[in-house]
Amino acid sequence: MNLTIMSLTARAMLGRKRVLMLLPMPIILIGLTLIGVTSGASDAQWGPVVFSSLGISVILPLTALIIGSSALGLEIDDGTITHLLTKPLPRSEIVLSKLAVAWLVTAVATGVPLAAAALIAGSGTLAVGLVIGAAIGGLAYSALFLALSVMTKRPVAVGLVYIVLWENILVSYVSGTRIFSVRQHATAIADSIGNTQLIDASVSVTTALVMAVIFIVVGTVGATQRLRSFALTGDAN
């Protein structure tokens, strides 16, 4: 870890308008929770829709995508990455510092509203489960999207393809693919701790933990390897 890289990254990330895109999602989440609680419907009826389908399946991946793809991607886009690359730093140090910032921001931006919503719904254990689920899932997503930002010029587009096509469509038709879906991991972890009707997981927590660790390791190592041979593309002047 490198504190200089981390503080530069955090400043650049939080100083942009892009960060405002994160605001509406928690508001919608808490609004829907209030509607669910006051509607008189049973927990099993509205809980999974709000916590799984919206919270973990939409808010967590989108937040991680916006943040994870910009942690290193913005610098690659505007060319300031050369300042970082021309320093005698192990590339793993750069990647780990960037990942740490992306993870922290993602975990806070998703964990806090999810926990607040769970508390409104009256489940303290679910709040804990969601915070841990969002933390582990957020780390796996961040590692994935950070790696994408070094490997492709369009990390947001590729990330959206993963979220929408793989996690939403493919997983619902081919059940075996769900073990490669980070949001299933996050849901399983939150469910096993929360232990309420408000959330419903479809993979075992052991599988979820193992697969999440694989995502984190492969993403981090992949990003580091790629950055080691990172070539500036540009005009051949």
Partner: peptide
């Protein structure tokens, strides 16, 4: 190539006007 240690004795000023303007 692939030798970050080299940057201890090398400095580069690129052509692209890439400066973090917020600093």
């Amino acid at each position: 190539w692939r030798n970050p240690e080299m940057y201890r004795s090398l400095g580069l000023v690129t052509e692209r006007e890439s400066v973090p303007g917020n600093l």
